[in-house]
Design a protein around this nucleic acid. Structure first.
Length: 370
DNA sequence: AAACCGTGGTA
DNA sequence: TTACCAAGGTT
């Protein structure tokens, strides 16, 4: 029997890692955490701590958003031991605004494990990395290949798109992931596996984009089965998304005679876990009348005009904001925080929106500095 | 295994 | 405006 079917023979040539690496040598993005292909050939090696830190930050987060956070973290904590020695509020505050706050909790936990149980050195194998908090299949493979030159199959959303198109895999995600990873494994080179991983992600982030891919510029344009069939833009096939409900609630901006404001720290797990908050009511899907029944003090609350709206991953939120001056500091839970110290707190974006609504002057400190 | 978990940019 | 999506992990 013939080794290749007639259908395959009339299809596209097999793609090679060499084609992609040649493209990467000319078009690699210049990123703060990256060793350029040129520097790498001269012997420069990546710092595993920076590779790991960047990969955690980049989970479901754009390169543009991560940039300033990465630079700030590296400046504040240049080595994994420094991060391990930081306090939890410091780390959560530095992460504030980046989202998916379990990443920050796991980041800190992982730094402590590496510092305390691994002598400050990251494990060099996928399995070793996988055992650390916050490191899943993607990140384990990424750190193993980029920092330690292991030929691991690094599969993220970009790579799923690139490979599903390259081989015209039209099985819907997530079922297709197994098949995609098999095909990816066949492509991973023994030489420069870290550059190959970064190259596939660069390709997906630039040319092989979700919409309007620039197939004419792609190093695999001749090899791409989806391009040959004219169906590149339709791949990968994704399941429909669920509808996003709206929840409603109230937030209570309570200041004292010195102009300090009452903040609380949320429970360590769940939504915005471990972050600070302006005290608030439960968030209900029922559009009940806004109330001060759940406020931190019985006092003369004033309802502010307008609403604060925010969209989370799986629901939208609409908040009514009340303000009041506390007669006394007694009998309230939480911390009284000076208004000029809010930027030092771990306030997620939705809470910064509440600050801006209740006290626009106090919110000015949140503006990004150039 | 499906749900949960943020945010900002883009079309 | 709505919808989609970005270097996913945990439970």
């Amino acid at each position: 029997m013939a080794s290749r079917s007639k259908k395959t023979d009339t299809s596209t040539p097999l793609p090679t890692a060499r084609q992609l690496l040649d493209w990467y040598d000319r078009h690699a993005r210049d990123l703060p955490w990256r060793i350029s292909p040129k520097a790498r050939k001269k012997g420069a090696v990546a710092d595993p701590y920076k590779v790991w830190l960047s990969e955690i930050m980049l989970q479901q987060t754009t390169v543009k958003t991560v940039g300033p956070y990465f630079l700030k973290f590296v400046e504040m904590w240049p080595r994994v031991e420094d991060l391990a020695a930081a306090s939890s509020p410091e780390v959560m505050s530095a992460w504030a605004g980046l989202g998916y706050y379990s990443r920050a909790r796991n980041l800190h936990a992982c730094a402590k494990v590496v510092a305390d149980q691994h002598g400050g050195t990251f494990p060099q194998t996928e399995d070793g990395l996988l055992a650390l908090p916050g490191i899943g299949p993607y990140t384990a493979a990424a750190v193993a290949s980029i920092a330690f030159d292991q030929p691991a199959a690094v599969m993220d959303g970009n790579v799923e798109r690139v490979v599903s198109r390259l081989f015209a895999i039209d099985t819907p995600l997530p079922v297709a992931k197994t098949h995609i990873k098999e095909r990816l494994n066949e492509l991973v080179p023994q030489k420069r596996p870290g550059d190959f991983a970064q190259a596939t992600m660069d390709l997906g982030a630039t040319l092989c984009s979700p919409k309007k891919p620039a197939c004419a510029l792609c190093p695999w344009t001749e090899e791409c089965a989806a391009n040959a069939k004219g169906i590149a833009e339709t791949l990968p096939v994704k399941p429909p998304k669920k509808a996003k409900p709206t929840r409603y609630g109230s937030a209570y901006w309570l200041t004292d005679a010195k102009g300090h404001v009452l903040l609380r720290t949320r429970p360590p797990k769940g939504l915005l876990g471990g972050m600070d908050e302006v005290p608030g009511s439960e968030w209900s899907e029922q559009t009940t009348q806004p109330t001060t029944d759940e406020a931190p003090a019985k006092t003369d609350w004033q309802q502010l005009p307008g609403k604060v709206t925010h969209v989370f991953t799986h629901f939208a939120l609409e908040l009514t904001v009340y303000t009041a001056q506390a007669a006394t500091r007694s009998k309230v839970e939480g911390d009284w925080v000076p208004l000029d110290a809010l930027a030092q707190r771990a306030l997620p974006t939705v809470m910064r929106k509440i600050v801006a609504h209740a006290d626009p002057e106090a919110a000015k400190q949140f503006r990004k500095k150039a």
